[in-house]
Simulated scan of single mutants.
Amino acid sequence: MVPEAPHLALYEPDIPQNTGALMRLAACLGVPLHVIEPCGFVLDDRRLRRAGMDYLDGLDLRRHASWTRFAAEPPGRIVLLTTRAAMPYLDFAFAPGDVLLLGRESAGVPEAVHAAADARVAIPLRPGMRSLNVALAAAMVLGEALRQTRHAAPERP
């Protein structure tokens, strides 16, 4: 039996191209994607479609009207990716069904969301470097979560 996939969750994303890339990533790997609104763009924006291409039809997309609605019934343990975390993501023990939460590209997440996370992990960066692109960061951490939980995308027919 294949363990439950990790989930990706985007907190109020504001760059449609990043959201499209994450939609494509989630579709290709069989990972549910949660978009916590409001977004900084129209969710059906043509740039988002362009970034997601024809992969979006296979996406398990779950939209939430607000953080409050999402946090009322999260699908699993919330693991926030943040530059403020002390725990490197490679030292963290991921579990099936974990929700990898990514903040806004422009501002991260507010303190209340940061505090509500069950865990916080960071990608260690060289001194003087602030952060990675949100889609790159998600791909790195999601890859490790998939490896640890031994989740694999379904076989091709």
Results as ranks from 00 to 15, higher is better:
77 R>K: 08
23 M>C: 14
13 P>W: 02
101 L>S: 05
94 F>Q: 10
58 G>Q: 09
4 E>S: 11
95 A>E: 14
92 F>W: 03
125 L>D: 13
32 P>R: 09
84 R>N: 12
11 Y>L: 07
106 S>P: 12
51 A>W: 01
124 P>M: 06
122 A>T: 15
127 P>Q: 06
131 S>W: 08
129 M>I: 14
110 P>Q: 10
134 V>A: 15
48 L>W: 03
95 A>W: 02
119 A>G: 09
67 W>I: 03
94 F>E: 02
147 R>C: 12
80 L>V: 04
11 Y>R: 04
23 M>R: 09
32 P>Y: 05
5 A>K: 03
24 R>Q: 00
117 A>S: 03
75 P>L: 01
74 P>V: 01
31 V>E: 01
4 E>C: 00
105 E>D: 05
114 H>K: 08
120 R>I: 07
115 A>H: 09
22 L>A: 04
130 R>W: 07
72 A>T: 10
41 F>H: 11
29 L>Q: 15
95 A>V: 03
19 T>F: 01
32 P>M: 11
155 E>H: 14
97 G>D: 09
157 P>V: 11
116 A>L: 08
39 C>T: 15
38 P>V: 10
146 L>D: 11
50 R>C: 03
109 V>L: 11
103 G>K: 05
73 E>D: 14
6 P>G: 00
91 D>G: 04
144 E>I: 08
83 T>P: 03
96 P>D: 02
29 L>M: 14
70 F>L: 04
6 P>A: 02
115 A>T: 12
106 S>G: 10
16 P>I: 12
126 R>K: 13
85 A>D: 04
79 V>G: 11
78 I>H: 00
122 A>H: 13
55 Y>P: 01
151 H>M: 11
11 Y>E: 02
138 A>H: 09
17 Q>S: 13
58 G>S: 12
33 L>A: 11
108 G>H: 10
7 H>M: 04
20 G>K: 10
116 A>M: 12
129 M>S: 09
102 L>P: 09
151 H>L: 08
95 A>D: 12
98 D>T: 02
86 A>Y: 03
135 A>K: 07
98 D>A: 07
122 A>K: 15
138 A>R: 00
147 R>D: 01
30 G>F: 02
54 D>S: 12
12 E>R: 13
14 D>V: 02
142 L>E: 00
55 Y>T: 05
